[in-house]
Structure formats: structure tokens, C-alpha cells
Design a protein around this nucleic acid. Sequence first.
DNA 1: CCTGTTTATCGTCAGGAAGACGACTATGAT
DNA 2: ATCATAGTCGTCTTCCTGACGATAAACAGG
Lengths: 253, 253
Amino acid sequence: MPYDPSAFPPFAVTVDLVVLTVRRHALCALAVRRGEPPYQGRWALPGGFVRGDEDLTTAAARELAEETGLHAHDPAGPVLANAAHLEQLATYGDPKRDPRMRVVSVAHLALAPDLPAPRPGGDARSVRWAPVEDLLDQEVGYGRDGEQVTPLAFDHAQILADGVERARSKIEYSSLATAFCPQEFTVGELRRVYEAVWGVALDPRNFHRKVTGTPGFLVPTGGTTTRQGGRPAQLFRAGGATLLNPPMLRPEA
Amino acid sequence: MPYDPSAFPPFAVTVDLVVLTVRRHALCALAVRRGEPPYQGRWALPGGFVRGDEDLTTAAARELAEETGLHAHDPAGPVLANAAHLEQLATYGDPKRDPRMRVVSVAHLALAPDLPAPRPGGDARSVRWAPVEDLLDQEVGYGRDGEQVTPLAFDHAQILADGVERARSKIEYSSLATAFCPQEFTVGELRRVYEAVWGVALDPRNFHRKVTGTPGFLVPTGGTTTRQGGRPAQLFRAGGATLLNPPMLRPEA
DNA sequence: CCTGTTTATCGTCAGGAAGACGACTATGAT
DNA sequence: ATCATAGTCGTCTTCCTGACGATAAACAGG
């Protein structure tokens, strides 16, 4: 394949973001409202074009920062307060996925703690956190304020579903669930993350035994807190371990 | 983002293939020799441009068929003799990964049984199966015939490493290892697949208990065969189950 | 102050799965 | 006949999990 610009068709390349967080015991995703056709007025995943001199991950981190103010977590860099986990998810390139032109979208998955000030972007009406089950509802779904939130534009329902499935399976065998937690958190808060992402109830005693017994998963900080009423809980931060062995088992049924 | 062709830079989009098989107890990948610059004469992964009206998976399947004669396995279609598992792996888009122009490559992973007639493509000198450890050797590596096979062109060493890691982890919790086997195979042959992919030795008795005790993994065909000398073994084919629960545990250390 | 409620944490017990490994079986090679 | 090679069946111990009782430390309300 010699270098011949006419030998290949030009593509537009975008990054789309599945940004997940846990709010009020529910797994939520970031959605933006489209201002122009196609799919004008419909909700979509945040994203944008990759620039000519930009790496894919860089483009995803830039879009993430623009939409949420979150920084992608750099393992080599300093520990940031507003850091989110960011990884590539999959690439979607159906010739008809965008009616305007041939667009290949490299979807990324970001996991973020619940933002203390949930002010993603400047325009509150055009960006929102929505429970993923509302966004993925097969029937027409409505948000808390009664606004229609589905179906998502383009193939974004498929992308979101893939991202949710990736998150659900990845917290089984990695310590990624801590990406949904603030820097310091309790075992109960971590358990509620698992419960929200998986949509199941977990036994608090067995969960406590499992996470505290896995070396490198949690590091006690020494402090204690009462955040939900009840007995104060120990505070932990994420340990260095990234892989959980043996994994956290997701209840079947 | 209104439709404005000048608002985004054009990209070339390619598919690259990590085609893996098990030959002579070693995990091998398909490599092609480059005929033109850049990296002329170096080995690379097979791949090519995505056509203007083509889905990414379709493009990968087309390249796979062109290079190997293998068909991508379609779960809805008939059972083909020369069927390989094909899935998207990851996308690589560093601005400098191709010195000629901006190329985004959507890498795919294919798993194939050892071909009875290992004649991939027409030109035997330009296509070969090479053990992945030779291709990934940090030092300059040489193939069986003493020919230099590393370093691979472009970022293909990274792509290959990612594909190998995907295969290694995926056979843990799925029945994907059967994709390396012919339609009918013995427990011992399946075990040698695991041993080759993971590079470890497994206990034949525990392995036998595990795979025959997992419902839906293996279906006995009734026949028996002696392929390696020794007592004849039962023949099986892959069952319908795709997920292994509990998973096959990869020995640590 | 006392009691009930909530959340956290520790302990116990039975069942299942896996690693280590002995034993037996059915072929081919010498 | 004997040995080597592979396949298959069992046993035993250990570890992990799920189910669940019990205790601890906070708060709310009478």
C-alpha cells in the first residue's frame, strides 16, 4: 500500500465519553443535549472531534475536562482531588451511524466520584447526570423532572450500554470501584458503590471481610467518620493494588 | 458542532489484525513482511484501509479472509470449518504512529485453530506464523530460520502485546480457548492450548475435572481418538456456554 | 437516662472449588 | 512381556464464600 492520498477515503474521528458516577445510590451517566441537527434536542454522550495533532487519550481527557472539570487520573502525576479514571472503551464506525458523513468514534469510559458541586459545564440546562436505566430505557424514558431523556442520539445507547457493562465487569476483578469514591471513604460507602453499579444488595459483613482482607486494596488512614448515622466507620484510601485476586464475586440471579 | 468539513481534520482509518493460533505448543501470531517504506522489509501485523462504505468489523473480516482464508465466525450462521473468532481489540491513534500521515488503526483480535495447510496468503515469503515471544522479544529476535523478526513495524509490538494479553485473560473466564481447537478435540488438546497461551504447565487431572465439570463448556461427541500415543481420549466439541463460572484459574508465579 | 434504630465490625459454621497427588486404564513401542 | 505415554477417576486438605448470630458505637425520641 503505497502512499497515495486517493487510495483511502477520509474519515472524521471523534471521541465520545461515557462518564459514570454514583449518585443517590444510582449509577448515573453524563448526558448533554444536542443543540443542532441531527437529533436536535435529544440527549447524547459528550464528545467531540479529535484534533489533528492530538492523541486519542488526550482528546478524551480534554473533552472530559471541558464537560466536567475533571482531570484524568495520571498514575505518574500527583494525586488530584478532581481526578477520574479514564480508559478507552471501544470504537464505533458503522457507515451510517452519523447521517452527515463518515465518522469513526473512539468511545472512552470515565469513572468519577460524585461531584460535591455537580456543576458540569456552564449551561445547566444542556448537561445533566441521569440514571443509566433512564437513559437506556427501551420504552421512552423520563428524567426526574419529567423531561424525556431517551432514546439517546446516534448509537449512543449502545455505547453507553457497553460502557456500563465494562464498568460492571471491571469492578469484579479490579479495584476500580474506588474511582467512584472520594479520596477517603468508608467500607460502607464502597459497598454502596458496588450495590449501585451492580444493582444488587451485598451482605455488609462478608463485604467487609472481603475488602479488608484483600492485601493492597484498602489502606486505613486512621480517621473515623459518621456520615450516615450509626457507629463511626474507619476511613480508608485506595491501596496500590489494581487487580483483585480472588475477584469480588457478583451475585448471580 | 455544525456540519462543516473544514471544522475537523481528515484521518485515514485502518484495521490491523492480531491473528493468534497455537502451533507446536507455542502461541503464534500472523506477521507479514512490508514491501514498501516506511519500515520496508520489516515484519508487521496484517491490515489495511477501511473502505468508505464498510463497517469496522466487516473490514477486519475482509482482511482476515484475504490474509488467511479464514472466515469470521458468525454465531447466527452455519458452522464453518475455517471459522475464527474475531473481536475488536483497541484503537491506536498516536499522531506520529505513521510518519506518512495521520492514521487511526482499529486493531482486531482473531483466534484461529492451527491450519491444516498453513498457507496463509499466496506469497510464502511475505507471510508467516511466528511465536509471539520472538515477535515481542525486547532484544532483536530471530525466527526459526534465523531471519530477523523484530522489532515489528509501527506500534505493532504494542498492539500485539495488547492482543496477547487480551487472549490470555479472556480464556480465563470464557470458553474462547476452544477457538484455538478444531471442531472436535480432546481434553488434552484443550489443555495444551491453555498451556501454550499462558506459558505454564497445568495438572491434567485437575484440568480434566474442571472442564468436564463445567456445564455447557464441552459436549462429548461419542468418538475417541489417539493422536499423541497413549490411551485414546474422548472427543468433544465446544458447548453453547460462552462464560465460565467459576473461571479457569491462571496459576500465578 | 433509657430504649430503639442505624451502621459498623467481629465471629462461627457449612458447602463448594481448587491444588496436590495416588491409582488405574488403554493404547503404541521395544 | 515390559515400558512409556496419555487419559480418567478418586481422595484429601485448604481456602473462600455465603448465611447469619452477636457485639459496638453513634443518634433520636421519650
